[in-house]
Amino acid sequence: MKKWLFPGILAAALAGCSNGPANPDEATAPADVIATDLEAPWSINKQGDAQFLFAFVFGF
């Protein structure tokens, strides 16, 4: 019983992690990838071509 203490704590910590599964195989709605390896932070430009990206600044 005791030997599972650490993995149990780790699993609990991961469950509480804010990031969740970043895996499209586990996605609740399917989506197609248009572009990869984009540097953060990026914003989708909302005039015209959605594939045109423009950097912006945020703290959060």
Binding site: N19, A22, A29, A31, V33, I34, T36, A40, S43, L53
Partner: peptide
């Protein structure tokens, strides 16, 4: 369309992040 931000130091990047998607 949506764009991820997993490489901003607060996420867990996977291969190819960050990505631009179109929802099916």
């Amino acid at each position: 369309y949506f764009i991820t931000n997993n490489t901003d130091g607060r996420g867990t990047p996977t291969e190819g992040d960050d990505k631009l998607y179109i929802l099916n």
